[in-house]
Nucleic acid binder design. Structure first.
Lengths: 299, 299
DNA sequence: CTGAAAGCGCTTACAG
DNA sequence: CTGAAAGCGCTTACAG
């Protein structure tokens, strides 16, 4: 050991990996669909949580962003998964088009999914409760004529969950969820603006808009302003995600926090549990309502 | 080859790495100082550019976020660098406290630095030109009483560059740069608000504030509003970075784009040049002024 | 040009 | 308990 110190011996990880079968590499997989992944505020948050747990245990993070289509993930990713290079995988796995964990399972690599694709071990944010909290907040302020800015269910498996939560809160308040006008955006700010324009034109007496993410909410607010509305005096707008921008936007956004870093660290800890031979249960992370100035009672 | 197809043979990367000495792993290094790295909008942008080049060539990205102090990077990172696991390294290398590429050089691993620490191969955004363009724009609108919201030079090596560019543009317009009031923030939105409060209290006749990043600019705008200013009618505020938020903020921010994805892809291409035995020259990426509604002529 | 052997630097099961 | 040997699955230099 003294000699190790003196000579500055550093083990060769490739040799260690070959002989022990352990690479100490965890792949964190963010499927790359419609260019969204590098615009998704959850990505860095989840990475932050995963990184903290991995670095503490001497594991390295390999970042994979496979292109995902109906036929599955791209060839590079499949090669990587089958190459024996990975001790474990953590994947954002909520795109309906396909599960990125399917080839990982087939290869028998321990993995944890973040999201809704059925898989052995998984962590998810409680999207249903997030949707419920958001609708409950808006209804609780006294709103009754509420418009919804959503995205198609085929985009993400969290969508039906959030909508189901909203439905439950609306119905608990005696409102007819199916009667609420609904427009479909694409998560983007301009998309949110378009939806707001459509909804407010179709039904000018709406007093609130609930959006499935913060970027659409920001677009909706800008559009509403151009149509002569004041947020929140004559229109309440709520978002989802609590991206960094949400707190510094004007007005600051009422939204739902998914606690990305905690999701990431929980997923990582769950993976290390699996690697240690345990069989952890599904974890559903609570969401938190962040009430800011974009919501207020109706005029 | 037919048999390869039929049997589904996949080479074992660990074995290949050991025998060939090539791992096909590139580490992308973002030093983790004062929790900034996961709040830095450049991180995902650079990753996006690097990822595009690497995946195209069948290289994998290992994400490293070493804690950086005056004594250098943390032990885990040093072990990784010396372990023979990396074919190359791309690092954000502009923190004055230390260079994360120093141990990489010592080990003889091909590497490219993004930033200002002197190193053999590097790419950087032209911060001097960015500072110049920003000051030139503000001066060109007719402003003469301009306040600066900066950060201490010890925080980042881009700071003196941006300030030098601003000085050059100010002096080219016959203004005394040293007479411009200056406050030091910490890149954060609240920090920007504090600085704006200080500057506008000290010198209420300022007609413009130039900030070293967008987050501080957003804080400055909110603070100015609370002090009765209207942006841009009675106060121009400019930022730097063109983060996604900049275009949807109210008012949309005048700022400088560093083109993060292009920085990342240039750095990656440069690294592959080095791996191919070439000796690429320093690349300085041009910046672009994005003039939006937060700047206007003085009242 | 083809095919068998050595070697990459570890870990680990095993003989002493 | 200690130490020498085999083996992980490739690549590559070399003999045929």
């Amino acid at each position: 050991m003294q000699a190790v110190e003196e000579l500055g011996y550093i083990p060769n990880l490739a040799a260690r990996a070959l002989s022990s079968g352990k690479t100490h590499i965890i792949s964190v997989v963010f499927p790359y669909v419609y260019d969204a992944i590098f615009a998704d505020p959850m990505v860095l948050n989840i990475l932050q949580g995963v990184e903290a747990e991995c670095s503490q245990r001497g594991y390295n993070i390999l970042l994979s962003t496979p292109r995902l289509t109906a036929t599955g993930a791209d060839e590079n990713y499949l090669l990587l998964v089958r190459s024996g290079y990975l001790d474990g995988v953590i994947a954002l796995d909520s795109y309906p088009v396909a599960s990125v964990l399917e080839p990982v399972h087939k290869k028998g690599i321990p993995c944890v999914g973040i999201g809704y694709h059925p898989t052995t071990y998984q962590v998810r944010s409680d999207d249903r409760s997030g949707g419920f909290q958001l609708m409950q907040h808006v209804v609780g302020l006294g709103h009754q004529r509420i418009g919804l800015i959503a995205v198609p269910t085929r985009d993400h498996l969290c969508v039906p969950e959030r909508l189901a939560g909203m439905r439950a809160a609306a119905e608990a308040a005696g409102l007819d969820f199916d009667a609420m006008p609904l427009a479909y955006g694409d998560w983007s700010t301009p998309g949110g603006a378009r939806c707001a324009a459509e909804l407010l034109a179709r039904q000018p007496d709406l007093t609130a808009l609930i959006c499935l993410n913060d970027r659409m909410a920001m677009g909706a607010i800008q559009q509403a302003r151009e149509m002569g509305r004041h947020v929140p005096r004559t229109l309440t707008v709520a978002g989802y995600d609590d991206i960094p921008m949400a707190s510094v936007f004007a007005p600051p956004l009422t939204t739902i926090s998914q606690q990305g870093p905690e999701l990431g660290s929980r997923a990582a800890r769950m993976l290390f549990d699996v690697l240690a031979g345990r069989q952890p249960e599904l974890v559903t992370m609570p969401t938190h309502l962040i009430a800011r100035q974009s919501s207020a009672p109706p005029p």
